[in-house]
Design a protein around this nucleic acid. Structure first.
Lengths: 103, 103
DNA sequence: GACTGATGTCAGCATGGGCTGATATTGTCA
DNA sequence: TGACAATATCAGCCCATGCTGACATCAGTC
């Protein structure tokens, strides 16, 4: 049985700015100020996107004085990669075997 | 350098019904009639979602008389899995090394 | 060629989600 | 405690997108 893909997480990643955030965080744990600098987006806007990522479980926060560090949760990305790898493998098997349902 | 994630493809997959379609197609190449039966969605609705998947390059069509078979393009899913695996690995390295930018 | 079934396209409506300015909250420092 | 910096939340606007009914198109059959 295929592990069903978590739509919540995919939707969180279905936005260019959020993907950009994730790519930045993959290289380095950053706080909101850095993300504002790096992306050029408004603080309010970023905060909204970060909340989406947070609620989807893609990132987690770590308060540090006045600052809030954002870091990725690798397991979520790895699980997603695994799901797509499964789907891809199943799809390849289906295509290779030309397995189709008769009309 | 990380291979940037294709937002177009992710957006195409950021819908429960489209994910359902992809999961069905991963197991078996189907035509529209089958997808209508399996999902319970209207034909028009399905046709719209299939177009999104088609334009994103996730599926391809194969006309067969009056019917149209839809099959997945495994390479797209595998590429996506690869991108997320890279991101996940980078994220894990960053988190493990506690690599963070000073404020 | 006429009919039927399969499929795609279009216009319209409703909802969701992104962006913004204003505001609230929280922590630091003097 | 008061001022300030960092961050989150809220309300409102606007655009993208999903769903639907109506219609168009195309292939197969009689």
């Amino acid at each position: 049985m295929l592990t069903s893909v978590d739509t919540e997480v995919i939707r969180a990643l279905a936005d260019p700015l959020r993907v950009r955030i994730v790519e930045l965080l993959a290289a380095e744990t950053l706080c909101t100020t850095h993300l504002v600098e790096e992306t050029g987006a408004r603080q309010t806007n970023l905060s909204n996107h970060l909340r989406v990522l947070r609620e989807a479980g893609v990132v987690e926060t770590e308060p540090c004085g006045r600052f809030t560090y954002y870091k990725l949760r690798p397991a979520v990305l790895e699980a997603l990669a695994g799901s797509f790898a499964e789907l891809g493998a199943a799809a390849r098997a289906t295509v290779d075997a030309d397995r189709k349902r008769a009309c």
